[in-house]
Nucleic acid binder design. Structure first.
Lengths: 330, 330
DNA sequence: TTGTATGCGTTATCAC
DNA sequence: GTGATAACGCATACAA
């Protein structure tokens, strides 16, 4: 890997001149320019970003810290982010946290060491303490998928999504309800709110299943779905929904006849299952693009003090998994 | 972000001493050590990897250049690679090429500029010219998923996979065959070889569909499947297979009755479709891990001149999409 | 237009 | 045990 200094000695000019030629900002005589350019091309000169970063205090690196890249939702998000970042001449350092706060923090530390210009992340936690901690983290950052309140965020309302599913279930005539997910999920809160508004007696007709334990999930599902008929199950994401669909199949329970099922994210998974899965669509590409754009702004110091929060719209995509009569299946 | 020099002036020692304390290799007096350590902790000192890279000629960055992160196969591969790299103290710069050679080369150029220590990639092309070009690219690298011959590779035999599907189709009694994929795919060659071995008249009973054009694919499928009965379709990956399944559904053709369908990769997609999809499983995690390990070796100069090629085993996972009698569905 | 000199934050090689 | 000092590859202010 040839350096400017080497090109300088090869062409008999100073390193400063080489720098000027290669960056093309300052003025140089056509002859020396040509000489230098030729030499650079001949030896396939590649600027050293590391050295440039050191002097320029800018790495053109942004961290992308995601909960689970193997989840198609995040994979598609990563794709959108990579594409948009590339357009803006930034490169991406990728971290997968497996929803672990510890791994998230380790990733942030590493990014700090690399002096990344910014951070895009799907937070593992958004408790007040964590938000406070992240705000101490001195780096432009944008939360994707979750509203972190005092931190710039691009997200959809999970609460609203929960309400939408609740309304849909009620409209379809379901009378018992299950939410399968984590405990601090706004989707559950919205789901409950939606059910309550309609006067559903939650104590009797609602059941929460912690989705972290597969065995427990199976037991609970078997019990609940067999016990109460006319059940609508809301899973916190499509992957979870697909898992539940498998369990129901094992239990010889039919969707939507024995239990309706709805997911979240509207990944392509939702389209390919049988019956197709009702889900809440997030505008993934738009989220990725907006998040990168806002991050670039922050990096460039635009409205640096402001905390910009974009809440994007979700759409209920109803499919066969919640619609009993075949004629309504899209 | 505090620097060593700043800590030095704060504690009244030289920057060199701060470096010694923080790296803990050379000997320093306990008192100065404590002084420096306290100061570093108080100001949350974070070593500057960029500066370290510049002097050390090592970035601990490796490029991960993938064809399509939104494909669950690559997403899972990325997950495995990230995890393994993290264990080894390396971080990952991610690029998505969308199967474009141009984008691949642009990614490689950028990685060169960042002075990445190594490269892991799923090649967009493995023609002799491209292989030759990559060999000029002066950076430790390992090809994943594809055998690049003169370049270190971790892969499965696509040829063999094609043969396996052919044998499976023949065993199941199919008599007409379609391959849907790209033109330079060893899977097709293996598929043809497998069919030929059994004496299938390829001119009459084999048809190739270019999977790049969705419309053309639909037309061809409609024509071929309706024309010839007892058809076995082999798609170059699960995503493609799922697309074909959708098309067949639109055409009111039933799987496997009107046409059998097999995919490749055995991603979780294969399990969740109805009927479940017969596919060829690649050991994704092992591939990712092995690739990282070999790359680390190359970076460390172990068998640097050697070209190590790991061919891993595939497994045929037969499911309902190719098995007509229900009792055989797993 | 061009060259010299300095600094970015480290590590490492010297001396003392 | 500790402090100068020189690199690493580059950008840039200052001179010439």
């Amino acid at each position: 890997m040839i350096t400017m200094t080497e090109i300088a000695s090869l062409t008999g000019v100073s390193q400063a001149t080489v720098s000027r030629v290669l960056n093309g900002n300052s003025s140089v005589s056509p002859e020396t320019a040509k000489k230098v350019l030729d030499c650079a091309k001949e030896h396939q000169y590649q600027p050293n970003f590391i050295a440039q970063s050191l002097v320029g205090n800018k790495t053109f690196l942004i961290g992308l810290v995601l909960s689970d890249i193997s989840n198609p939702f995040f994979a598609e998000l990563a794709k959108a982010v990579e594409s948009e970042a590339r357009n803006k001449k930034y490169s991406i350092i990728l971290f997968n946290t497996d929803y672990s706060l510890e791994r998230e923090e380790s990733a942030l530390e590493i990014l700090k060491r690399y002096r990344a210009d910014g951070l895009l992340f799907s937070p593992a936690s958004w408790s007040p303490e964590v938000v406070e901690k992240r705000m101490q983290y001195d780096m432009p950052m944008v939360s994707v998928t979750i509203d972190m309140g005092k931190i710039d965020s691009v997200y959809v309302s999970h609460f609203e999504a929960g309400e939408k599913i609740a309304r849909h279930f009620l409209k379809m005539g379901y009378e018992n309800f299950i939410f399968a997910g984590g405990k601090d999920d706004d989707k559950e809160k919205g789901f409950l709110s939606g059910l309550s508004k309609d006067g559903v007696n939650l104590d009797k007709h609602y059941f929460y299943i912690d989705s972290h334990d597969d065995d427990e999930m199976k037991t609970n599902l078997a019990e609940r779905v067999c016990l109460a008929k006319n059940v609508g199950i809301f899973a916190h994401n499509d992957i979870q929904a697909v898992k539940i669909a498998e369990i129901l199949k094992e239990l010889k329970l039919e969707i939507p006849h024995d239990a309706a099922l709805a997911g979240f994210d509207n990944t392509f998974l939702a389209k390919i299952t049988t019956p197709a899965l009702t889900s809440i669509a997030q505008p993934i590409e738009e989220m990725g693009k907006l998040a990168v754009e806002r991050l670039m702004e922050k990096i460039d110091g635009v409205d640096k003090e402001k905390c910009v929060r974009y809440q994007l719209d979700t759409r209920l995509i109803s499919r066969g998994s919640t619609i009993k009569s075949n004629k309504f299946i899209d």
